[in-house]
């Protein structure tokens, strides 16, 4: 393993922020994994740290294929993580909305640029991502539909679901989108946590990435075969909005199978305690996303259900 600083930035009041990359194996740039780009992505950093730990053992045992290099960057934005902020410390900009970056631009554009120069040239790229809607997800892999990366590759992660997302204008400045445009087969991997490490889903993510590397000829090791991945487009997700605001009491969790008419949750008046709405599933399916804040607004997206 080779531990190195892949990008560094100075602050007038703090120690330099040195973005650390861990390289395993030698040869062509085979796969790169990027963890936390936002200050609350503790789970994303944790997954990477577990991956570093596993790869140390695998490298020691000679399991990295000849001529293949792997890089893991567990945490890009630890300045924000150390002060409990999601976006960039000073101007609150999101590094993951600054790609491909600009070396003469603003601070987060420079960070994105410096990082992106290191990330280019890898055959495969995996970003441990978090979503702008707060909630629990079933672990899954997602591909931004750019035409550059094959949907079929996602099956090699062996996760139950793989999604294809049609990019919106604001997606065009994300790492995933730009990685693909610059020739890397890029995927976003979601676990069911962000702010707090979740052991089980972290293990699922680590296993999925190891499995992908084995199937793509980067690692030689024994790994479970995983799921027969179903590749689905976002239009198969049925989105359920809340008709009222209040306290949400959910009766289902992600992964549950629900039938049309099943009670999903009750919304309670926050001052009077009475039930003001009951939300029933309008379709048969699997709960893929569940809103997880105790207080919810009217029109909050409460659930996303994969229609069966």
């Amino acid at each position: 393993m080779n531990k190195q600083v892949v990008y560094s930035i100075q602050s007038p009041y703090r120690q330099p922020m040195d973005v650390i990359g861990f390289k395993f194996g030698k040869g062509e740039k085979a796969l790169c994994v990027v963890g936390a780009m936002r200050g609350n992505e503790v789970q994303q950093m944790y997954v990477c740290s577990q991956l570093v730990s596993r790869l140390k053992e695998l490298e020691r045992d000679g399991c990295i294929c000849e001529g293949k290099e792997i890089m893991i960057i567990p945490c890009v934005n630890y300045y924000s993580m150390n002060i409990g902020k999601r976006f960039w410390t000073m101007d609150n900009t999101d590094i993951n909305r600054m790609f491909p970056g600009y070396e003469l631009g603003e601070t987060t554009q420079r960070i994105a640029d410096g990082l992106f120069k290191e990330l280019q040239g890898y055959t495969y790229g995996v970003q441990l991502a978090s979503f702008y809607q707060q909630g629990d997800f079933l672990p899954h892999v997602k591909l931004m539909k750019t035409g550059f990366t094959s949907n079929e590759l996602m099956k090699d992660f062996g996760l139950p679901y793989a999604f294809v997302r049609t990019p919106r204008p604001y997606d065009t400045t994300t790492l995933n989108y730009n990685w693909q445009v610059w020739g890397t087969n890029a995927f976003s991997l979601y676990t069911n946590a962000t702010d707090n490490p979740d052991e089980n889903s972290a293990k699922t993510a680590v296993d999925a990435i190891i499995r992908f590397m084995v199937k793509r000829g980067i690692l030689k090791t024994r790994v479970g075969s995983g799921y027969l991945t179903e590749v689905i487009s976002e239009d198969r997700l049925y989105q359920i909005q809340s008709a009222s605001a209040g306290i949400c009491r959910s009766f289902v969790k992600t992964g549950d199978e629900v039938k049309c008419g099943d009670l999903l949750c009750e919304l309670t008046d926050p001052l009077e305690g009475c039930v003001i709405a009951k939300i029933f599933s309008p379709v048969n399916g699997i709960v893929f996303f569940r809103f997880n804040r105790p207080l919810e607004y009217e029109k909050s997206v409460l659930y996303k259900i994969i229609r069966l």
Partner: peptide, 10 residues
């Protein structure tokens, strides 16, 4: 407009 969580609307 939309309802906020506690006794208020945006």
């Amino acid at each position: 407009s939309a309802g906020l969580a506690v006794n208020e609307r945006i």
